[in-house]
């Protein structure tokens, strides 16, 4: 279980997170929605320690994430970055098997390659893709490789940062379905940040809306459409008018 209590983060005068409280149960798929620039990525990166909060605590299974063995902590996570964040200088299979070629999860090269090809197949990519470089792939293929890398070491928790940004609706649907299937199949805890409502409906068990540095609303995805919260309603209906300023 991931618990965030009173998490705050500012960048200079810009107070991005103003006291975020959120709990993500084990095996649950939580999707965080909110407008651009509301701090969704900062929140996600705070859990991983890529950003250090100014105040508040973040715990994983009751253990403060800033304490203990960092490598063991990170080994429990997989992450799909918004742009894929694939390493340009490495072949696709080496990207996917990155964690399996180094550190305490290291395996023989042949075995790591075999696992990488299997994971690529799992995300719908042919084995021939394995020996290509990221620059030779389309945006959708890069997202799939990023997804394969996120699940390569069978993590307990997977983070997805804007998984469908920049993709056409059909490819977005493919990625959303893949994420849902993989999360269910692995029994993983998932935290996704997005402002794509089709992703929310396809991926989420629960939804949390981040606005003005705090969690404005949280609940099961099945209750999202019926909530009277005007912020949530404006966001999911994509209205320009409402309590959320269109110009920020």
């Amino acid at each position: 279980m991931i618990t965030l209590s009173g998490v705050q983060k500012s960048f200079g005068p810009n107070r991005v997170l103003r006291g975020v409280d959120l709990t993500i149960a084990k095996g649950e798929s939580m999707v965080i929605i909110g407008g651009s620039g509301t701090g969704k990525s900062v929140l996600l990166k705070s859990v991983l320690g890529l950003v250090t909060p100014d105040a508040g605590t973040i715990t994983l299974d009751g253990q403060d994430v800033t304490k203990g063995d960092r490598d063991a902590f990170l080994a429990r996570f997989g992450m799909l970055f918004q742009g894929g964040a694939l390493f340009d200088s490495l072949k696709v299979w080496e990207n996917v098997a990155f964690r399996l070629l180094r550190g305490h999860l290291a395996r023989p090269k042949a075995e790591a390659r075999e696992i990488a090809i299997e994971k690529l197949r799992r995300v719908g990519l042919k084995p021939e893709t394995a020996d290509m470089f990221p620059a030779e792939l389309s945006g959708g293929m890069q997202k799939r490789v990023g997804l394969a890398r996120a699940i390569a070491a069978s993590p307990e928790i997977i983070f997805f940062d804007e998984p469908t940004t920049g993709l056409d609706p059909i490819m977005s649907g493919v990625i959303n379905d893949l994420i849902r299937e993989i999360v269910v199949e692995m029994g993983a805890t998932a935290m996704t940040i997005t402002h794509d409502m089709s992703s929310v409906r396809a991926i989420a068990d629960k939804v949390a809306m981040l606005h003005d540095g705090v969690i404005r609303w949280t609940g099961p995805v099945s209750e999202m459409d019926a909530t009277p919260d005007p912020y949530v309603q404006q966001f999911i209906q994509g209205r320009a008018t409402g309590p959320i300023a269109a110009v920020r």
Binding site: F81, G83, A85
Partner: peptide, 16 residues
């Protein structure tokens, strides 16, 4: 460029 494209963050999440 690696920093801008989040590859450095990706390295950290891959325990590197």
């Amino acid at each position: 460029t690696m920093k801008v494209t989040e590859q450095i963050d990706a390295l950290v999440t891959l325990s590197t």
